[in-house]
């Protein structure tokens, strides 16, 4: 079971169609079951019942998740595999000691791979869809895997299965999600 976490403003349910549903479709196509909850509803019970967690992105103007950092403290000790997408990567960074800052990219950009990783598309660089107004640093001790001209595009924990990508893999890079599910033992792709 995959737990999809909706990071959008709870007052804006329309955003779920745009940022959670495309990820849910990839998970479904991969043969894994999924459930979804808002980030304010993630608790020990929700985490215990799932094999992996995907933190989905949200709209450019939505910064509500940044004002609710107490809801992400579980990430510091997470044992489930976690993939943070865009805003999801930002909250991983914040929870684990990184910082966020204003940094906007919209549309397709070239991403340079620094450290080849099974989750990322193969090759030294790849095109990715960006939709963010905030960038983030890697938490201390984490590995930076990829960069665009503007900011860090992918990082991972050195030991635990925690990953963050700033680009939106649900657009033209579905393989990132599929490979994450496979590594988590949840997908068939």
């Amino acid at each position: 079971m995959i737990l999809l976490v909706d990071l959008s403003d709870k007052k804006r349910p329309l955003l779920r169609d745009e940022f959670v549903r495309p990820v849910a479709q990839i998970v479904g196509r991969s043969g894994a079951e999924w459930t979804c909850c808002h980030f304010t509803e993630v608790d020990g019970q929700a985490l215990a019942g799932c094999g992996a967690v995907i933190l989905c992105g949200t709209a450019l103007k939505d910064r509500s998740y940044l004002d609710a950092r107490e809801h992400f403290s579980w990430l510091r000790d997470a044992v489930n595999p976690v993939l943070g997408i865009c805003a999801g990567m930002q909250v991983i960074s914040l929870a684990c000691g990184g910082i966020v800052y204003d940094c906007c990219e919209i549309g397709m950009v070239e991403v340079k791979t620094l450290v080849p990783h099974p989750l990322l598309p193969p090759g030294p660089q790849f095109s990715a869809f960006e939709l963010h107004s905030i960038g983030c640093t890697a938490p201390p001790g984490w590995r930076v895997l990829a960069l665009s001209q503007a900011c860090i595009q992918a990082f991972c924990h050195p030991v635990r299965p925690l990953f963050g990508v700033m680009f939106h893999p649900e657009v033209r890079n579905e393989g990132v999600v599929e490979r994450f599910l496979c590594r988590a033992g949840e997908g068939t792709s």
Partner: peptide, 26 residues
């Protein structure tokens, strides 16, 4: 991506929210 990115940019310039409820709908 061409269409949505341009609408997103215009909305950002105008400080407006942008919603694409059909985005990547199967």
């Amino acid at each position: 991506v061409y269409q949505s990115s341009r609408v997103q940019r215009v909305c950002r310039e105008l400080d407006l929210w942008c919603f694409n409820p059909l985005w990547y709908y199967d």
